[in-house]
Write a protein that binds this DNA or RNA. Structure first.
Lengths: 206, 206
DNA sequence: GCAATTTTAGGTCAAATGACCTAGAATCAA
DNA sequence: TTGATTCTAGGTCATTTGACCTAAAATTGC
């Protein structure tokens, strides 16, 4: 079923809004900027998104949804709580590299920063963000459960939250904004996440 | 030497500006909001900070400087590259707990989010932030150097960057904004940081 | 084909905004 | 004491802003 002009237009407006948020930041982005980026006039934009906060909220929801979906795709296996299976170190390495790559997308990093800052002062945004992180860390728990089947559910939850913290922090610090990225540093992050996911490597005994 | 009225006023204006940034966010904070929070009129505020970006920049510099100083104080030892010494697990535990506590201050977390978001679209802010992280991770290197004297300098740098990533990410995810905090989760973060700082715990051999 | 609905263009408005200004009071330094 | 400097209050201005509106064009569905 071909999508209606309205649905396509809405998506184009959201694309344009994202681009403006990424380049000018939320603090400097006006409705006329969003409209111009989409090649329409403000009245038209406001037909689809009557208020500024309608637009920003829609961008936020779309961005968070995309991040969740990407994690599911990167995993390539069922992340739900009931699912069973194991995870080899090479598979977790592959997954973590994909995750780190996703956290390197400069536009995505900036979108996330804007969302965090928005959520810091807008309770509706914060609520959406908490829901997102609950789901996101739930997915990461699905990963940890396969690497550490010996852990209790609360322990799995804590490990997953730590992995999420590490990757969210790395997205910022490894970006051009903070400038702490090195090639070997990426490997250190993956090694750390693997330590969390799999536990200690086999002991070397004399 | 008693500080002049101007110096005291400036500090009070910066305090007020911080509070407004934390509660309203940069995107919704006007010069008149800042002035009102400080109990003065906008003209007076503009005497001390002629443009909005002068004010925001000053807040940014002060916040980053404070974070650096706090890390120095929490360490309680010389973090410079040439300094030598060791670091026990109990001392690193104490330091990491202090660091995590500092990363739990909701106003501070919000200030940092606003600074990150600002730096994402303002190159001057980004430059200041890069300088800050360079120094901050330099300090953390001073910690890692004591825990892992066997590492090369590039390795120390990568480990330090990973510790910084973990703590910056944790500040966000453990805040009310993201809602992923648990008591045991805090211990998982500290354990992870200790693993990074000290390396693997002694092997248990039969 | 035609009425209803959706899409599009363009305009207007009051309020808010950052920037700039004047002038008087307070403080400082010689 | 006096002039210079700093501090403080309050005002003004042009521009920008989000929100709201009208009307025409395009599309849809019966």
């Amino acid at each position: 079923m071909t999508e209606s002009k309205g649905v396509l237009r809405k998506a184009a407006l959201l694309d344009a809004a994202e681009e403006v948020l990424v380049t000018k930041g939320n603090a400097n982005a006006a409705m006329r900027d969003f409209a111009a980026a989409a090649g329409v006039r403000i009245g038209h934009l406001q037909h689809y998104f009557p208020t500024r906060s309608d637009l920003i909220r829609a961008v936020l929801e779309r961005t968070l949804e995309r991040s969740l979906r990407r994690l599911e795709e990167a995993a390539g296996f069922d992340l739900r709580a009931g699912a069973s299976g194991t995870l080899t170190r090479s598979d977790s390495h592959r997954l973590l590299e994909a995750l780190l790559l996703e956290h390197s997308d400069l536009a995505d990093v900036r979108m996330h920063l804007e969302i965090w800052a928005l959520a810091a002062s807008d309770e509706l945004a914060a609520s959406a963000l908490r829901s997102f992180y609950s789901q996101y860390s739930g997915h990461v728990q699905g990963v940890v459960r396969r690497g550490r089947p010996d852990l209790t559910e609360p322990e799995i939850s804590d490990v997953a939250a730590t992995v999420v913290s590490l990757f969210e922090g790395a997205a910022v610090t490894r970006s051009d904004i903070a400038g702490l990225r090195t090639e070997q540093g990426d490997q250190a992050i993956i090694r750390t996440a693997q330590w969390l996911i799999h536990g200690q490597e086999p002991a070397q005994c004399p």
